[in-house]
Simulated scan of single mutants.
Amino acid sequence: MPHKMMQLLSILIGRLLFMLIAICELLQQLWLRLHALARRSYDYWQCDYHHELFERTMHELQKLPQHLVLVIAPDDRYVDATLLKRIFSYAQIVGIPYLSVYDTRTPKNGYVDLSRFCQSSGNENKCYLWPSQQVKEQKQVQLNGCKTVVSNGTTNGSASNGTKHYAQLQVYQIGTADGHALIADVCRELYENRKTPQVQELLKERQALTEGISARLNKHLGFAVPEPELGIIFSRLTCIYGLLPWHVRFTEFHTHRSGSYFDAKSFAKVLYKYARCEQRWGK
Rank of each mutant, 00 (worst) to 15 (best):
P2I: 11
M5G: 15
Q7F: 12
L8G: 02
L8C: 02
S10W: 08
I11K: 15
G14Y: 11
L16C: 12
M19T: 05
A22T: 03
A22F: 02
A22L: 09
E25V: 06
L27N: 08
L27P: 01
L30I: 13
L30M: 13
W31E: 09
W31L: 11
R33G: 01
H35K: 14
H35Y: 08
L37F: 05
L37E: 08
R39S: 06
Y44W: 11
C47R: 03
E52F: 08
H59M: 08
Q62S: 10
Q66S: 05
L68A: 03
V71A: 01
A73C: 04
A73Y: 02
D75V: 10
D75N: 14
V79F: 04
L84W: 06
F88D: 01
S89A: 12
Y90W: 00
A91Y: 00
V94M: 01
P97W: 03
T106A: 14
T106M: 07
K108Y: 11
K108E: 13
G110A: 07
Y111F: 15
S115A: 14
F117I: 05
F117R: 11
C118V: 02
S121A: 15
S121D: 15
N123F: 01
E124S: 14
N125C: 07
K126R: 15
Y128R: 02
P131W: 07
P131I: 12
Q133N: 10
Q133Y: 04
Q138H: 10
K139E: 14
V141Q: 02
Q142N: 15
Q142G: 07
Q142W: 10
N144R: 08
S151Q: 05
G153W: 02
N156K: 13
S160V: 03
N161Q: 04
G162V: 04
G162N: 13
G162R: 13
H165R: 04
H165I: 05
Y166I: 15
Y166L: 14
A167D: 10
Q168A: 04
L169T: 03
L169C: 03
Q170G: 04
Y172F: 15
Q173C: 06
I174T: 06
I174W: 10
G175W: 08
A181P: 07
A181G: 12
L182H: 03
I183W: 10
I183C: 04
D185W: 15
D185S: 13
V186C: 12
E189L: 12
L190A: 05
E192L: 11
R194C: 15
K195L: 14
V199A: 08
Q200H: 03
Q200K: 13
Q200C: 03
E205T: 10
E205H: 15
A215W: 03
A215T: 08
L217Y: 09
G222C: 07
F223T: 01
E227Q: 13
E227L: 07
L230Q: 07
G231K: 01
G231D: 00
I232V: 10
I232N: 02
I233H: 04
L237H: 11
T238H: 11
T238D: 11
Y241V: 03
L243M: 06
L244C: 07
L244W: 01
W246L: 14
F250H: 09
E252M: 10
T255I: 03
T255G: 05
H256Y: 02
H256A: 08
G259R: 02
G259S: 01
Y261R: 05
D263M: 06
A268Q: 05
V270Y: 02
Y272H: 14
K273H: 13
R276M: 10
W281P: 00
K283R: 12
K283H: 10
